[in-house]
């Protein structure tokens, strides 16, 4: 689906989404609208459904959409296969990046870049152009070039895996990037690099959904909105100050306010 650059249409529009896994309801009426140029942070207790949301957007099959709708660029996202969504510009930085032994990182990167280019009607990059393109991006996120020769994520440290996710994101230049806890388990230096990667990609026509447990990421990637996901629903939304309050006070106060209003 070729996209009309219509600024009135939000990039992503989720309405009353209900999702279950193995018959167990996980998302229970979630609505969220993301427009181009925006950064949305999603926080929330463990098991509240953050990764579920990310996986549903990417099209993972074991997540069953029971009701509700997801529009992406005004079109029904649920119609598309996983790789079609990717080719249309949805990128998921995995909470646990997957290891594939024997598949060299460089080979993988080449394949995914060219798959996207072919989809966009662009010519494939030749080996030299490819190398230049990849190495340029690697430099900007201070990634060790030796990681290109190694197998995809295999034997990478946690930090290297997360950086590799950011590298792929920078290379594919997606319209909607979903970062699922990309900051978890990173030292402050690595955290800055990840944040830089996101900030470099930020533009008028891209949007980000950043799932995190730790407020300190949001000192580096300034969110336009912060949402709290609890028990499958967004229970509070605000700006970056909401994240600070959550860091200091935890989630209990939200649950209490909620049960009072419920």
């Amino acid at each position: 689906m070729e996209t009309e650059n219509n600024n009135m249409t939000p990039l992503l529009e989720i309405k009353d989404l209900h999702v279950s896994v193995n018959g167990e309801p996980i998302l229970k009426g979630l609505s969220l609208t993301v427009s181009k140029g925006e950064v949305h942070a999603i926080m929330g207790p463990n098991g509240s459904g953050k990764s579920t949301l990310a996986n549903v957007l990417a099209g993972r099959e074991e997540y069953e959409v029971d009701s509700g709708s997801i529009l992406y660029n005004g079109q029904d996202l649920l119609e598309l296969d996983v790789n079609e969504r990717a080719l249309e510009g949805i990128f998921l930085a995995f909470q646990y990046p997957v290891e594939i032994p024997g598949v060299s990182n460089s080979n993988f990167l080449k394949s995914i870049i060219n798959a996207r280019r072919v989809h966009q009607g662009l010519p494939e990059l030749n080996a030299l152009e490819m190398l230049k393109y990849i190495q340029g991006k690697m430099e900007s996120i201070e990634m060790d070039k030796n990681l290109l020769k190694r197998s995809l994520n295999d034997g990478f440290s946690g930090g290297e895996k997360k950086r590799n996710e950011i590298l792929q994101m920078s290379l594919l230049e997606p319209s909607l990037s979903i970062l699922d806890e990309t900051d978890s388990g990173l030292d402050i230096d690595a955290l800055r690099i990840v944040a830089d990667g996101v900030n470099q990609l930020k533009s008028e026509d891209r949007a980000f959904i950043v799932v995190t447990h730790y407020q300190r990421l949001l000192n580096h990637i300034i969110p336009d909105y912060v949402h709290v996901l609890s028990d499958g629903k967004i229970v509070a939304s605000g700006d970056k100050h909401l994240a600070e309050k959550l860091e200091a006070e935890g989630y209990d106060w939200i649950r209490e306010t909620n049960s009072m209003t419920a």
């Binding site: 463990n46 946690g158 806890e181 978890s184 388990g185 030292d187 447990h213």
Partner: peptide
């Protein structure tokens, strides 16, 4: 002896 919580190194 070290005890590690989530996301720690």
């Amino acid at each position: 002896a070290a005890q590690q919580e989530r996301d720690s190194r």
